[in-house]
Structure formats: structure tokens, C-alpha cells
């Protein structure tokens, strides 16, 4: 069993991190590092791609693997390029909700349609945290943010349902309260062929916390009480919702190249 110190020395660089005290992003980083360690994947076989935002900082600069820190919302297109270029790599995209659904929502839908072998981890804190707490597509109806001081007039988007409809082959949702399950889910996602989408609902102690006067521990307690694996409970549904087999795009492209008489290195 790896200890915390060994894990830190193996997978983390540039400590201390810039995350606020109690931020869920560090917890996701912890879970991801553990999943890679448990699977025994070498660090050189992983490429982590991120966009812009607090969540993008999870992999770049803090994860000690090859990383790409790309433009806002365009983490998935860059990751597709990496995957098609060398399909033996494990490509992980870590993106925030504003980055993944707000700015780059179109790319997410089409990556799911193509079903390319990526592991997309969307860290959902319900607002744009880095820029000051503006309303995001995932902000719940009636939630007060800095740009919706009278409550969000529109409805929040259920991203797990969106990617399910778009055709991702593995979809799951967990919160930072469920760290053990989340670690197992990342392990499964790294091994699963096709697009794996994991939504992680996290606390933002600085933006949500100050606005609603909630501490990190109160938010974690809220996740415990308001999530359920049973969709009929009327709570936030957590767990694996899709697990199916579909043709994977990078495989198909490589087969086409070979059948057309091309050679691969």
C-alpha cells in the first residue's frame, strides 16, 4: 500500500498547490493519482490535457505526467489529436464545468458521438470559480451567483444525461464525498475502451461557500445527505449510469489506414 508521502513524491509537483483550503480539486487529483498507482500504469503512458479554469490546474502544472494546458474549452479537441496521433497513450482530460460544457460543450458532444478513447473528468462546482463566481450552465435554478444576484432564472444542465444521449460508452457521476468510489471509477474509466465521462460534483469553499455561508465540511455533509444511487429517491443520482460497447474512433482510423495500404510506425 502506497503511503501519502510516496504518492506525493511520485505524482505531484510544484507543491504547495494554489488551491484554496478545502477545495475539491486536490481531492480529485488525489483520487486520480491513486487510480493510476493501483492500475500500475507508467507515468510516461499518460497524457493529461486541460483547458482553463480552477479545475484545469489539477493536471497542469500539478500532476507529474505529460500535460497539455490548452485554450478555454478546447481541451477535448487537443486530446483527440493526442489520441489519434498515438493510440497507445492513456489520454485524460480534466476540465471544469464552465470549460467543458459552457465554452466547449460542442466539442464534448462530438467527442461522445465519435466515442474516442478518452477519460474525461468533469469537475462540477456549479459556477465559474476562477473568474469570480459567475453563473455557469450547470448552476441550479434559483442559485444566487455574482451575475445572478436574484437567483438563476434558467435551469441547470444535467451533463451526465447529455453525454449519455450523445453516445459516450461509460458515464458516471460521483461527488468528493465518495472518494473511494471515485477512485474505482477512474480506474475503470482508464481501462474502458471508448469515451469515459466522469462528473465529479465538488465543493467550492471560496465562491459557493462564502455566498451561501457554508464550510467545506457542511458542503461534504450536504453531498452525503442529498445523493443517492437510486434515481427514484429525488436526490442527485450518483453512480455509473452507462456502460456499453461501441466502436472506438482511433481504432477505426488506424484500421482504415492499414486497409488503404498505409503503414504505421
Amino acid at each position: 500500500m502506497i503511503t501519502g508521502k510516496e504518492l506525493r513524491e511520485k505524482y505531484i509537483r510544484n507543491q504547495p498547490t494554489a488551491f484554496c483550503p478545502g477545495c475539491g480539486d486536490g481531492m480529485v487529483l488525489n483520487g486520480m493519482s491513486r487510480a493510476v498507482e493501483n492500475l500500475g500504469i507508467e507515468r510516461k503512458d499518460i497524457v493529461a490535457v486541460s483547458g482553463i479554469g480552477c479545475a484545469a490546474w489539477v493536471v497542469s502544472p500539478y500532476w507529474r505526467v505529460d500535460t497539455l494546458h490548452t485554450t478555454h474549452g478546447r481541451a477535448i479537441p487537443h486530446a483527440i489529436g493526442v489520441k489519434v496521433g498515438n493510440k497507445d497513450l492513456n489520454v485524460v482530460v480534466v476540465s471544469g464545468d464552465g470549460d467543458c460544457v459552457g465554452i466547449g460543450g460542442n466539442h464534448l458532444i462530438h467527442a461522445c458521438r465519435n466515442n474516442i478513447d478518452l477519460t474525461v473528468i468533469m469537475i462540477n462546482n456549479g459556477l465559474y470559480a476562477m473568474t469570480g463566481g459567475q453563473v455557469a450552465p450547470t448552476t441550479e435554478h434559483g442559485e444566487k451567483t455574482i451575475t445572478t444576484p436574484y437567483g438563476n432564472p434558467s435551469q441547470g444542465m444535467d451533463v451526465a444525461e447529455l453525454v449519455k444521449a450523445a453516445g459516450a460508452s461509460h458515464v458516471a457521476r460521483w461527488t468528493t464525498y465518495h472518494m473511494r468510489e471515485l477512485t474505482k471509477e477512474v480506474e475503470y474509466a482508464l481501462e474502458k475502451k471508448g469515451l469515459s465521462f466522469i462528473e465529479v460534483i465538488t465543493q467550492c469553499p471560496t465562491r459557493t461557500g462564502k455566498k451561501d455561508n457554508l464550510s467545506t465540511l457542511e458542503m461534504l455533509e450536504w453531498y452525503k445527505n442529498n445523493t443517492s444511487k437510486n434515481p427514484e429517491d429525488g436526490k442527485i443520482t450518483v453512480g455509473r449510469s452507462v456502460d456499453k460497447e461501441r466502436p472506438e474512433m482511433a481504432d477505426v482510423i488506424y484500421e482504415q489506414i492499414i486497409s488503404a495500404g498505409g503503414t504505421l510506425k
Binding site: R8, I12, Q15, T17, G22, C23, M27, N30, T183
Partner: peptide, 16 residues
């Protein structure tokens, strides 16, 4: 149980 190690966002705890 290593719960503290698993949940620490800052990798500050190590149980040996």
C-alpha cells in the same frame, strides 16, 4: 483505515 490520506486535498498526511 487511511481515510485521512485518501481525502486530503493537499497530500499533507502520510500514514506509515
Amino acid at each position: 483505515c487511511r481515510q485521512c490520506e485518501l481525502y486530503c486535498p493537499d497530500f499533507a498526511i502520510s500514514v506509515e
